[in-house]
Simulated scan of single mutants.
Amino acid sequence: MVTGTWREWTLDDASAWLSEPGADDDKYRRGVLGVITGSPDYPGAAVLGVEAAHRTGVGMVRFTGPRAVRQAVLAARPETVAVPGRVQAWLLGSGMDSTNRSFRLAGELQHALASGLPSVLDAGGLDLVGSHTGPTVITPHRRELARLLHDRDIPCTVEEIDADPAAWAERTAQQLRVAVLLKGAVTHLCDPDGTRITVTESTHWLASAGTGDVLGGIIGALAATHHERLAHDAAAITHLAATAALIHSEAARRASDAWEGGPVTALDVAHAVPAVVGGLLRR
Results as ranks from 00 to 15, higher is better:
Arg142Thr: 13
Gly130Lys: 07
Trp205Val: 00
Gly261Cys: 12
Leu240Cys: 04
Val186Gly: 00
Thr133Gly: 12
Arg282Leu: 14
Gly107His: 14
His188Glu: 11
Arg283Asn: 13
Val129Phe: 08
Leu128Ile: 02
Ser202Gln: 15
Tyr42Thr: 09
Glu201Ile: 03
Leu230Cys: 03
Leu148Thr: 06
Glu201Phe: 00
Gly278Gln: 15
Leu121Asp: 08
Thr238Met: 05
His132Met: 06
Thr5Trp: 04
Gly279Tyr: 08
Leu11Gly: 03
Arg142Glu: 15
Pro263Gln: 09
Val186Ala: 07
Arg171Pro: 00
His132Leu: 01
Glu8Cys: 08
Gly44Thr: 12
Leu113Tyr: 08
Asp191His: 01
Arg142Gly: 00
Pro78Phe: 11
Ala234Asp: 13
Leu128Trp: 15
Trp90Ser: 02
Leu240Phe: 03
Ala72Ile: 07
Pro263Tyr: 07
Ala123Gly: 09
Ala169Met: 08
Ala270Gln: 11
Pro84Arg: 05
Gly216Lys: 02
Val273Arg: 08
Thr195Cys: 13
Leu189Cys: 03
Gly279Met: 08
Val47Pro: 02
His111Ser: 14
Gly261Asn: 12
Gly262Cys: 11
Ala185Thr: 11
Arg147Gln: 14
Gln175Ala: 15
Gly4Tyr: 11
Asp257Lys: 05
Arg70Tyr: 00
Val50Glu: 10
Asp13Asn: 12
Arg152Thr: 04
Ala234Gly: 12
Ala14Cys: 13
Ala242Met: 05
Arg29Ser: 15
Gly278Arg: 15
Val58Pro: 04
Ala114Gly: 05
Arg142Ala: 14
Arg196Ile: 03
Ser256Gly: 10
Thr37Arg: 00
Ala266Glu: 10
Asp25Val: 09
Pro84Tyr: 09
Arg254Ser: 06
Ala245Gly: 11
Gln71Ala: 15
Ala258Val: 03
Thr198Pro: 10
Gly125Asn: 07
Leu91Gly: 02
Arg55Asp: 10
Arg62Gln: 11
Leu91Lys: 02
Val276Arg: 10
Ser15His: 05
Ile197Lys: 01
Asp213Tyr: 03
Ser256Thr: 12
Ser94Cys: 14
Val269Met: 15
Thr211Asn: 07
Asp164Thr: 05
Leu281Thr: 04
Thr133Phe: 02
Ala52Pro: 05
Arg55Gly: 08
Ile138Met: 09
Thr225Leu: 01
Pro43Trp: 11
Pro192Lys: 07
Asp162Lys: 13
Glu250Thr: 10
Cys190Asp: 02
Leu121Ala: 08
Ile218His: 06
Ala52Glu: 07
Ala169Lys: 05
Ala167Asp: 12
Asp191Phe: 00
Thr3Glu: 13
Leu267Phe: 02
Thr3Met: 06
Leu105Met: 14
